[in-house]
Design a protein around this nucleic acid. Sequence first.
DNA 1: CGAACTTTTGACAAGCATCAACACGTGTGG
DNA 2: CCACACGTGTTGATGCTTGTCAAAAGTTCG
Lengths: 248, 248
Amino acid sequence: MPGELSPLAPFLRKLELHMRLSAADREAVLSLPHAVKPLRAGAFLFREGDPARNCCVILSGFVCRHKVVAEGARQILSVHMKGDGVDLQSVMLDVADHNVQALTAVEVAYIPTQAILDLMPTHPAVVQAMWIETLVDASIQREWIANVGRRDARARVAHLLCEIGVKLEAAELARRDCFELPLTQEQVADATGLTSVHVNRVFQALRGEGAIGGRKRSLVIDDWARLAEVGDFRPTYLHGQAEAVGLA
Amino acid sequence: MPGELSPLAPFLRKLELHMRLSAADREAVLSLPHAVKPLRAGAFLFREGDPARNCCVILSGFVCRHKVVAEGARQILSVHMKGDGVDLQSVMLDVADHNVQALTAVEVAYIPTQAILDLMPTHPAVVQAMWIETLVDASIQREWIANVGRRDARARVAHLLCEIGVKLEAAELARRDCFELPLTQEQVADATGLTSVHVNRVFQALRGEGAIGGRKRSLVIDDWARLAEVGDFRPTYLHGQAEAVGLA
DNA sequence: CGAACTTTTGACAAGCATCAACACGTGTGG
DNA sequence: CCACACGTGTTGATGCTTGTCAAAAGTTCG
C-alpha cells in the first residue's frame, strides 16, 4: 500500500505536525476505512442536529463550519482545507452542534467514527494526535472569539487574512503572502461578524494603505508585517501550524 | 479512600455526564495525584505563554479564561466552576494560548499532565471522557463566536445569563433561574464584547421588560422562556450539561 | 469611616448597519 | 453570438446601536 498516494496522506501529515508517529501508526492512519466523495460548492457535509456517525477529512477544496442565529444571520466558525479533519469531535459527541458546508467544490473522505475508536487500544499515539488536532481547533476558536469580540473591523479582516495565509502555507497550497482567497467578501463578513458592505470598505482601506494588493480574489499581502500588526496577529494560537511555516 | 469525599469527586461527576465509567476507572480519577491550592480573586492560574505542565480542576469558586488584544481590551472566553477541568488541553499542547484567572476566591487542584497521560493504556475510558470534556468546551466556544459575532447586545447578555444558569444547575450549585451572578457587569461586558456602560443599560432593559429580577448580583430569572427567546438560547451546544438539567 | 470597587446616569460621537442602486464578470441558453 | 440572469463587488446616503467620557451614587471591606 503506497502511503504517499493514499488520499489520507495530507491528513497524516497534519497529525504529524503534532506528534511523532511510528511506521505502524502511520500505516494505521493511511489504511483507515474511508469513502471519498466529491461535493459541489454549497453542499452540506453535516447539518446542525444531525446524528454524528462519521467524521471527514478534506482532500481538496475548502469548507467552513457555521451556525445560524435566530434572526437568520450566519456566523462562520472556521475555515478548513486539505488535510484538515473536520468534526473529528463527532467521534465523541452525539449530535452535530453546527453546520459544515462546502465553500468550493471539494473532495472529502468520510471515516466511520467507530474505526477511529478502534484505534485507541492498538494505536494510542494516533488517537492522541487526533485529540491534539481537536485542541488546536479549539485554540483557533478562542482566538476567533477575541477577534469578533474585541477588535475593530479593520483588525478583524486583517487577522482573518493572516490566518488563512498561514494555514494555506502550512497545507502547502500557497505562500502565505500570495494566494487565492477562498472566501467571497460576504463570507468574510460572516466570519468576522460584519456586513459585506463594510468588509468591502475595509478591503479598500487595506489596499489604500498598501497592506494588501492583488485584484479580485487573488490576494497579495504586500506588507505582511503591516497586515499582521493591523490584525494583531500573533500566531502562537495556531500551535504546530505556525511552526510549520517558521512563525513560531 | 472514600471516593465521595475526595476533592476530585465533582470532576468525576462531570466526566460521568459524558461516559459510563467502571468502578476501577472512577477510582483512577479520584486517586489522581493533585495539589490543592486556594487562590484569591484576581489571581492567575495560568498566563498566556506559560509552558503547560499542569491542568487544574476547580473545587470551589469561579474562574474565567481570557485573552488580551493589542489595544488592551480583554475578551473573556469562558467561565468555569466547581468540577470543571480547566485547561485539560494543556495536557497535550505545549504552551498556554490564553490566561486563566480567578473571578472569586477559588480552590483548585493542580494535576500533573503526565499523570493523565499515564492513564491512556490503563484507563482509556477516562481519557476518552476527558477528551469529550474538551470537545464540549470547544462546542461552547463555537456558540460564543456566534454570540459575540451575530447577536445584538440584549441577546448576548441574555444568552450568557442562560448559559451560566444552566451550568450552575448542572454543577448543583443553584437553580438555573435563581443564582448569585459570579460576574461583575464589567466582566459580563468582557464576555460579550460590549462595554460595561452598555451592559448596565441592557440589564435595566431586561429588568424593565420583566425577563429578570433580583437586585445587585442576586439574579432571578422571572421568565426563563422569555429570556431564552431574547438570547436565542438553544442549549444543545452544552451537550451533557443540558441533559443533566432536563433541557435536552 | 474612608478607600476602592461597582453600578448608574447623561451628553455626545463614532463605527458599522441598512437600504438601494449600479457595475462587472461569467456562464447559460436561445 | 447575443441576451440574460446571477453572483459578486462597489458606491452613496442615512440612521441606529453601541462606544466614549465624565461624574455621581451606592456598595464592600479593612
